[in-house]
């Protein structure tokens, strides 16, 4: 019998969206999910890893910098290398960049203040394991909450990201246009979320877990987790078919 895909939600000291992510995965979507402590070095048994938002280790150096050197992130690197799905949300995105799993950096917001508000995003790629349940070019609403979310990278890196289609989410207005007003933090190329070349690691600043239930004002984030689940289940089905 096939096993249900299992989600790990990493807990760093200072994570503060860990409980929220677990709530959505386990209580809202009914997926097997559990916390994994930052000192854990073994992720076997998990099919997907969520690096949640927060202020890991206080973020007093650069956001995510200390977390990137933790035992669990070493394990995440191996896990990703073996093809596991990894999504970093907000501080988790910062960790993925600091760990070198994704290119570029997130710096202080344009305007220098923390911003917590709803944003509209365009789904640039609907063919990733994280976005298969969205339509290509679909405009969705997700909240952000960060002080350091301005995506930055050298021109050649941006060029490459665009050429390879690694930009997954972009800040846009309600009509899907990349206007300056629609960019809440000054991210280059309006980048809100991007994937690695292989497509199994995603980092994004918006919080899909905060918009997975209608009562919280929107549920566009829910399909991100559902896409992951479906992709993992399909992969397992294929694998089961091959071994038979």
């Amino acid at each position: 019998m096939m096993r249900d895909p299992r989600f790990a939600v990493v807990v760093f000291p200072g994570s503060n969206c860990d409980r929220d992510c677990l709530h959505v995965l386990r209580d809202v979507l009914g997926y097997p999910a559990e916390f994994v402590w930052h000192e854990e070095e073994d992720l076997s048994g998990f099919d997907a890893v969520v690096l949640p938002g927060g202020f890991s280790y206080g973020d007093y150096l650069r956001p995510g910098a200390v977390a990137a050197t933790s035992p669990v992130v070493r394990a995440v690197r191996r896990f990703a290398g073996a093809g596991g799905l990894v999504v970093g949300i907000c501080n988790g995105f910062q960790v993925l960049l600091e760990a070198g799993l994704l290119p570029g950096a997130l710096v202080r917001n344009r305007g220098a203040t923390f911003r917590c508000e709803w944003t509209t995003l365009r789904v640039e790629r609907a063919d990733t394991p994280f976005t298969s349940l969205y339509a290509p070019g679909e405009v969705v609403r997700m909240p952000i909450a960060h002080g350091d979310g301005r995506y930055h990278a050298p021109p050649e890196v941006l060029e490459e990201l665009e050429q390879r289609g690694q930009v997954v989410f972009r800040y846009v207005d309600r009509d899907g246009r990349t206007t300056p007003e629609a960019n809440p933090n000054g991210s280059l190329h309006h980048i809100a979320g991007l994937a690695n070349r292989e497509g199994n690691v995603l980092g994004l600043m918006p919080h899909p877990e905060r918009c997975s239930e209608a009562v919280l004002g929107g549920q566009d984030g829910r399909r991100l987790f559902e896409s992951m689940y479906r992709w993992l289940r399909d992969r397992a089905l294929l694998a089961a078919g091959r071994t038979r």
């Binding site: 503060n16 969206c17 409980r19 929220d20 709530h23 959505v24 938002g53 203040t113 923390f114 911003r115 917590c116 508000e117 909240p143 909450a145 919080h207 877990e209 905060r210 239930e213 009562v215 919280l216 004002g217």
Partner: peptide, 16 residues
């Protein structure tokens, strides 16, 4: 002012 505060964390905020 209030957009400088995270008012959504913990997933309880129904009326912000």
């Amino acid at each position: 002012i209030y957009t400088q505060y995270d008012h959504m964390v913990q997933l309880r905020t129904v009326v912000p």
